[in-house]
Design a protein around this nucleic acid. Structure first.
Length: 852
RNA sequence: GCUGGAGUGGCGGAAUGGCAUACGCGUCGGUCUCAAAAACCGAUGUCCUCGCGGACUUGUGGGUUCAACUCCCACCUCCAGCACCA
């Protein structure tokens, strides 16, 4: 009987129920067992699960199940990143409450996840929108407030006009809102920030420790944090007491600074122009820059606009008087908002100087061809060289000069070494409803007062009017806003903004260690046991946002003494997207494949197998319906072989048996399959090749004949080898196709032979004798090195680098033997005939190479 | 521009410097069938050749080596992230 659609449904339900009822994946701390924490980035509950989820969680599940079979105490939890704007949008569109909508979606997702057979510890399930969770968001916020890491300031912020809320720098993608793609504008607002910049140094330095993270994620974070070493130089403004501080990484070019440029927003820009003939022009320019969107200002590289401020500054190194300009290409948010312009050695300054007829001076020459002159130059010379026109520094190589000049300036008060960071503090205030209320109370007398810990959580009121416009919905809930000051008892008002939802996801991995603790954020011992996450799996889209914030929170909580690890995620795997016809599956493109439809026809195991087999986990995966059928056929072949050929009444041990050549061949295939799958799992989760190794073994099983042996006794022996091979197939496949493996394992009955089990000092949960117990905790099969060594090997023969033949030779044959065999061959002779053999190279058991 | 990654059959993809194209899909041929589907068996990089066999082939061009998809140099293309960052 084949493995039919009906069987699939019955089998999958049966085992899903078995796993759930027996809670076999519930994790317990056990100091005597080695732990392994597998985590996938938890989903935003937007409705049913999609193929992207299926891929992400299947990868994680295979790892979790594999590690269980290897004897690890595995923690594999699941939860929901449940706060966020889509719930509010649904509320506006459908007239349901964000809470009802979210919990409905969570139910849908949970049942979708269950149908895939994922090995979660459901006892630890959490949703960030539960007060029992966000209470601890507020608690962390208060701790940060206490340490001065959460603070409020008025400053220009990124504002999404469509979402009507502020955004963090990390949420602005190419000048647009990451969520709705509307153009982001700048707005001056009082907002709450987290001082992530205080952790810039360790966040950067510890990236080096994350050598099991993809290189590109580390590179992206490094660029984002953006440490640059440079010099701050002071230019006095002529005739005033004002000083312009500029930041440069090219102190070596200071003698070539022929003017100074301020950002339009720089406070001195307007001030310096006052009373000069340029006053009106400067005011107009500032006005124009303020009204130009940042993305437009930054877009065109050709157009560099600016005006003279009317003021002059003194270059401290040579007391030269240089004009002060303002230009749109200087950004207020980087460095000091002011630069020294060196047109000969900076391309932007060069373009600007040419456009506005500003003076230039060459101060670095290519040591090989010192021929640069300002008149001839068509672009800035930004390469290395030696200094000229630079007083006592003439002739110094420019890299060396950076340090020497800065030291010299520092000694005489002209400037100093300075480090600048690209990273900004994290703006977390959101003018939205469906998030964690910020636990602050504003008192007219006491100012911003933290909500006392005993009053947590500050509960999100259920009845806020959600319209999507007109500011924070919480501000309209009188009962929420009006409160007494915890310090003086007078009338006060609550903060009505909520936290950015990335706050919620920055520490959820810690809460899983002790998910239902209502006394403390989590038990420190539990966290010390489980943390750090050994393997984290998720999308590359979180390379900066979520992963950087989580690292920041972990470091902060470590400083509080709550966790013992520096970094939350030891290994990171970023899975590729699921494509169809070359495009990302998405509802808007209308090219989605619904996992439910695939489940109904082929079942979870085939779907899992297809997703893992079709591409390496990090690569993009092209959906392919006939590939899916191929994997279904593969499972069928195994099913038919076990049902038709496996005999559980054969009970002899393999050591009693004398194998013939065919038996040895099967054993070789069996052992090399174990080796290949194991190596693939240990060496970076190469699921596609691991599955192909099982396919190769299955091909060998199909070719293996048990009925041909002359005597009946040997037929029974052959059955033994067949049984052994089939059991190995089922065990190797168990992490990939768990329901299928459980069913076959049960069908196999009492365990008749030894598959060659892994021996290890790691304790395992007791498993019942025979095959009745779940295959999930069966020891992973071990391979036998000796069986991999055949008596003879096939080697190739090359003549002058070209393959001219293949030979079956004894293992480890020496050169003399090989020479005799190889040179006797007619095909080799044809290419060697009459020529002198200059070299005879032997690569043991692989090939010989002749040079004639 | 900077940073990271990738270019291998008709397709997805495989190869610690050692027989390129494993495994799967597709295609072609066959078995079974009245027929089809399913299943099973076989073939399948390109070119020349009836065949034996030979030549060529991992983005391009060089180099190192007995031997290069793999190492080195230069370049091209594509993907991703960042970007008037001083």
């Amino acid at each position: 009987m084949p493995y039919t659609t009906n069987d699939i449904k019955r089998i999958e339900e049966k085992w899903q129920q078995y796993w759930a009822v027996n809670k076999i994946f519930a994790a317990r701390e056990d100091a005597g067992r080695k732990k392994y924490y597998v985590l996938e980035m938890f989903p935003y509950p937007s409705g049913k699960i999609h193929m992207g989820h299926v891929r992400n969680y299947t990868i994680a599940d295979v790892i979790a199940r594999y590690k269980m079979m290897r004897g690890f105490n595995v923690l594999h939890p699941m939860g929901y990143d449940a706060f966020g704007q889509p719930a509010e949008n649904a509320a506006i569109k459908r007239g349901v409450s964000p809470s009802d909508w979210t919990y409905k979606c969570i139910d849908d997702m949970r049942s979708g996840l269950s149908r895939m057979g994922f090995s979660y510890d459901w006892d630890r399930e959490l949703a960030t929108c539960d007060a029992s969770y966000y209470k601890w968001n507020q608690w962390i916020f208060l701790k940060m407030f206490e340490k001065g890491l959460a603070y409020k300031k008025g400053s220009p912020v990124n504002w999404c006009p469509s979402c009507e809320t502020t955004l963090a720098n990390e949420e602005v993608i190419n000048g647009a809102c990451w969520r709705c793609k509307s153009e982001v504008v700048q707005k001056d607002l009082e907002q709450w920030y987290l001082k992530i910049t205080q952790y810039a140094e360790p966040l950067l330095a510890d990236l080096k420790k994350l050598d099991n993270w993809p290189e590109r994620v580390r590179a992206m974070q490094e660029n984002w944090i953006g440490k640059s070493f440079g010099t701050e130089i002071y230019f006095k403004v002529k005739g005033t007491d004002e000083v312009i501080k500029v930041f440069t990484t090219r102190a070596d070019t200071i003698f070539g600074a022929t003017y100074v440029t301020l950002a339009p927003e720089h406070p001195l820009t307007k001030k310096l122009a006052q009373g000069t003939p340029q006053e009106k022009a400067v005011a107009a320019f500032i006005e124009k820059a303020a009204n130009t969107s940042k993305s437009l200002r930054v877009s065109g590289d050709e157009r560099k606009e600016g005006v003279f401020t009317g003021a002059y500054a003194i270059n401290p190194v040579n007391n030269e008087t240089v004009p002060v300009w303002t230009a749109d290409y200087v950004l207020m948010e980087y460095g000091t908002g002011a630069i020294m312009a060196v047109p000969t050695h900076d391309q932007r300054d060069f373009e600007f100087a040419r456009a506005h007829n500003l003076p230039m001076r060459v101060v670095i020459q290519d040591s090989a061809r010192p021929t640069l002159t300002p008149q001839q130059m068509t672009k800035a010379y930004e390469d290395a060289g030696v200094l000229v026109n630079s007083a006592q520094f003439d002739g110094t190589p420019n890299e060396e000069a950076k340090k020497k000049i800065t030291e010299w300036m520092d000694a005489s008060g002209m400037g100093k070494f300075q480090i600048h960071w690209r990273l900004r503090d994290w703006l977390i205030s959101r003018q939205r409803y469906w998030g964690t209320p910020i636990p602050i109370i504003y008192c007219p007398t006491c100012g911003a007062v933290p909500v006392p810990e005993k009053d947590l959580p500050v509960a999100l009121p259920k009845d806020a009017p959600i319209t999507g416009e007109g500011g924070s919905p919480l501000a309209k809930v009188k009962a929420f806003v009006e409160v007494k000051c915890p310090q003086c008892g007078k009338d006060a008002r609550r903060e009505t903004d909520t936290m950015a939802t990335f706050f919620d996801s920055s520490w959820y991995f810690l809460r899983y260690c002790d998910a239902h603790n209502d006394k403390v954020i989590f038990d420190q011992k539990a966290a010390a046991y489980w943390m750090p996450v050994d393997q984290y799996i998720g999308g590359i889209e979180h390379a900066i946002l979520h992963l950087l914030y989580s690292r920041f929170f972990t470091k902060f909580l470590k400083d509080l003494g709550l966790v013992s690890c520096e970094e939350p995620f030891t290994r990171l795997l970023t899975q590729g997207m699921v494509l169809k016809e070359g495009e990302v599956m998405s509802k808007s493109r209308g090219n989605v494949v619904d996992p439910d439809e695939v489940l109904a026809r082929f079942g979870a195991d085939t779907l899992r197998l297809f997703i893992l087999f079709a591409a390496p986990p990090e690569d993009q995966l092209e959906w392919n319906a006939s590939g899916l059928e191929g994997n279904w056929r593969f499972l069928n072949r195994i099913w038919n072989a076990v049902e038709g050929r496996y005999k559980s009444d054969v009970r002899r041990q393999t050591s009693d048996v004398q194998p013939d050549a065919e038996d040895k061949k099967l054993e070789l295939e069996r052992n090399s399959a174990i080796k290949k799958v194991t190596d693939g799992m240990e060496g970076g989760f190469k699921f596609n090749t691991a599955i192909s190794a099982v396919m190769v073994l299955m091909n060998a099983v199909d070719k293996y004949e048990t009925g041909q042996a002359a005597d009946v006794g040997h037929q029974a022996d052959k059955q033994l080898f067949l049984n052994r091979a089939l059991e190995t197939v089922v065990l190797l496949l168990a992490p990939f196709a768990p329901h299928f493996a459980e069913e076959l394992w049960e069908m196999m009955g009492e365990r008749p032979v030894d598959v060659g089990r892994e021996t290890s000092d790691v304790k395992r949960p007791a498993s019942k004798p025979g095959h009745k117990a779940s295959v999930a905790f069966e020891p992973w099969p071990a391979f036998d090195e000796a069986a991999l060594k055949t008596d003879s090997v096939r080697i190739a023969v090359q003549v002058n680098g070209k393959v001219r033949g293949q030979f079956e030779v004894p293992r480890d044959a020496d050169e003399a033997v090989l020479r005799a065999i190889v040179l006797a061959d007619e095909a080799v002779q044809r290419h060697v005939a009459g020529k002198e053999i200059r070299k005879f190279i032997v690569v043991p058991n692989k090939l010989v190479s002749l040079v004639v």
